[in-house]
Structure formats: structure tokens, C-alpha cells
Design a binder for these strands. Sequence first.
DNA 1: GTACGATACGGAGACCCCCGCCGTTTAGCA
DNA 2: TGCTAAACGGCGGGGGTCTCCGTATCGTAC
Lengths: 183, 183
Amino acid sequence: MRADAQRNYARLLAVAGEEIALNGADASLEQIARIAGVGSGTVRRHFPTRHALLAAVFRERVDSLCAHAGDRIGRADTRAALLEWLSAVTTSAATIGGLAVALNRACATDPGAAHEHCATARLTEAGEPLVAQAATALAPGITITDLLAVVTGLALATEHHTDPATEADRLLGLTFAGISPAR
Amino acid sequence: MRADAQRNYARLLAVAGEEIALNGADASLEQIARIAGVGSGTVRRHFPTRHALLAAVFRERVDSLCAHAGDRIGRADTRAALLEWLSAVTTSAATIGGLAVALNRACATDPGAAHEHCATARLTEAGEPLVAQAATALAPGITITDLLAVVTGLALATEHHTDPATEADRLLGLTFAGISPAR
DNA sequence: GTACGATACGGAGACCCCCGCCGTTTAGCA
DNA sequence: TGCTAAACGGCGGGGGTCTCCGTATCGTAC
């Protein structure tokens, strides 16, 4: 990669991060280009699709969440381990503007394409062991996909709340233990 | 209201319904105007905001859900009554294109404005008695607002699924009884 | 039946965004 | 230092939103 391309890439990533945090996942690419001081074509060259840009912007955060999951494998209290991780994911999704939306529409377009960079796919992979080791504590039939759907949904639904993170986390706690637990 | 205005209103509502079902809550107003055979100004005159259009389009369906709630007040099995209603709401939200999005951003803009026509407000009002009468069966602190948030979130999160309604409903069942019920 | 005022209509204009394309610049190697 | 491939920028077409105003139409009063 040429040096100028690298510079622009880094610059765009930084600007896009701020802009997406500010205006959500639908932030204007044109605007990002303007702020970064590059042409709109340059944005599209580095990030052919909006999804590609979102994936790149959230990459570090997702990495961190994946590592978080890894740390919790093998813990004695498997139920707590899973809940803690889900809580961390929920908080991130509810706090970081655009992340929840990005997770929700991840890979929705173009299914079957290269999923290795997709945030949802990576979280799925990272969370799977946690679900497996907690299986006996979970309601039957629950998959990591289900759990991520719930987490994403809660983050989306609390988006307009005054304090999305705590609200989403509270709801996660409730749904985990049961809204109306059987007696 | 003038006769031609009435005609256009009805026509727009019908077209908007189809178009929103097809293209989601962000369907093009211009396109709706074109199909309805009216100018774009006419759309905006009848529905000053997108939210107003969505509210009008979903009005009947929301009415029906509210009535559904009323029918279930006073039932012996209060827990089942609540779950059934939530399930109905979930199914509608997941099935009818744009409804979940509309519910999610309802009243988000312009808080404190006239809420009487807002779908979320009406569902809240309608569901409240069901929550109240089932209170002893619910986890402490749960409100109708929480429940609608969960329902909306699940509908949003399953939007891109092959069969959103059954998937959302399944997740509702799981969260209701508990993802990982305490032993 | 007609004339008039209020009401609703339609679309032009300004602005923004996405997307594809291509002539021009520039980095990095020989 | 010169060359070539890679990267850049921005133009042009298509669409969308929103505002505004001249015009057509409805409904009524006479």
C-alpha cells in the first residue's frame, strides 16, 4: 500500500469514527470525505460499501469484545461468565453510536460473501464457547445467534433513551433471568 | 375537508401502506406521490412529517392491537394474557414492514408533543392494565415501557431473518420465561 | 346558474446524498 | 532522474427532501 493511501486510510478511519458516533451508521460519506479533506472517490476506494467502512471503524472494539469472551472461557461460573460477556457486548452496542445498527444489518446484504471481517460473524464465533460451556444453565434450544439477536435488539430499542447503556443492560438482565420466570 | 382532499388522503394512505410494506419505513415519499398520482407537495401537506404518515398508515393495526389488549383484561391467567398480547404485538411488528422501525423511533423526535396519536403511547396505555394485573407473576420493576422496548427490539433484530415473525416470537417466549432461568 | 373566496394542488428550485467514471497527479522503484 | 502503476479528486447523472408560490378547483352564497 502506498504511503499516501495509508495516510488517507488512517485519516478516514478516524474521521468516520467521530462522524458515525455523532450521526449514527447512516452518516454521510460525502461529509466524512469533506472533513478528512479527500475526494469522495477516495472514500469509496478504501471502503467500497458502507458496511466495509462500519466494519473497519468498529474493528478494534469488536476485537476487544472477542478477547473479552476468550478470557471467560473455562471459568467456574459459566452462567455468570456468559452474562458478563453479553452485558459487555450490550453496553458497547448501546454506547457506541452506529454499532448496534451495524450489527443488525451485518451481512444482511450479500449473504454467503466473505464473512471473516464481519463483526457479527466474529462475535458469534467468539461467543459460541461461552454458550456451549453454559449450556446446562440455559433454556434449551438457545444459540449464540439468538443471544446476539437479543442483545442487538435491546441496544436498538434503547437507542433513543436518555441513558441507553444502563437501560439496555437492565433489560438484558431481566430477559436473562426471565421477564416472568416460571415458578 | 374538501372532497378532493379526502380522495387524495385516502389514496395516499393506501399507496403509502403498500410502499412502506415493500420498502420499509424509509420508503420514498416522492415515489409514493408519483404512484398515487399527486404532487410531492400534496403528500407533505397531508402528512407534515414522516412520522405522521407512519402513524396514519399503522393506525388501524394499532387500534386492533389495543382492542386485543382490552379483551384480555380480567382473564384468570394473567400471565398468559400478557404473554399472548405481547406475542400478538411482536408478530405484527415483525410482519408488517416498517412498523417496528416506526415504533422504535416514535416520539423520539419532538418529545412532549401531542402523543395521543402516537402508536407507542397508545400501545403503552392499552398494555398497562395487562401488566398491572400480571404484576405478581413478573420480575420486580418491569413496566409496560420495558416490555414494549423488548418487543420492538426483537422485531428489529429479526428483521432480516427468513421468517421474522416466528423468530421474533420464539425469542419473546425465551426472554419471557428466561434465557437462563434461575434455578 | 353564476360568481367568488377559500382551499388544495402541483411542481419548480435549492440543497444534499450516493454512485460510477475518468483525466490527472504522485509515490516509489529502477 | 525518469517512468509506470497506483491513488487521487471531482464531475455528472439519478434520486430524495423540503419550501414556496402561482394556479386550478371546490363549495357556497347569492
